[in-house]
Amino acid sequence: MSPMALRSLNLPGVGTKYEFETDKGDTVAIFFTKTGTIQMYTLQKGCHTPSAAEMTPVEARRLGNILTGAIIEADQESVEIAFSALADLRVTIHTYIVPRAVAGKTIEDLRIRAKTGTTVIAVSRNDKNIINPPPSFVFETGDAVLVIGETDQLRLFEREILVD
């Protein structure tokens, strides 16, 4: 993948503009306006009129989460936390529902930490929460697990552990 040329521009009185062209020649432009809203424009290659959407900061973050692939299904949520003081450290906490294939296995059996780098920090089963489950913890179908890690590690978790 070649790095796309991202153009950023400060427009006096309006705000900041980010624009880039995709490999296929479509253009995406994002404006953080001084009024606090975020406008996103997309212009299909060969078209003259862009289409636009205006978002609140919360909506824009949600869109960002979808685009980074953090949200897979609507009932599976993820929260990304950025610590700007720690060299822009970003960790994501994601919930997953345990599928049948994983049921009956322990955290140790699945070698979650070794294979993916993520950690299971809590399990919710029948409205009861188990915080910091031990390595010997046995999963059951329908358990909701809370997993922490970087976005890439979580993707690995989805591929390596959940689809087994």
Partner: peptide, 27 residues
């Protein structure tokens, strides 16, 4: 300036090439 900027934002015209011209014109 206030009306020009508000109009560009509210009418979703920020991406037009003319809008940069208008913004610098206001400056």
């Amino acid at each position: 300036t206030a009306m020009a900027v508000t109009s560009l934002i509210e009418n979703r015209k920020l991406m037009m090439r003319e809008s940069e011209t208008i913004i610098w014109l206001m400056v």
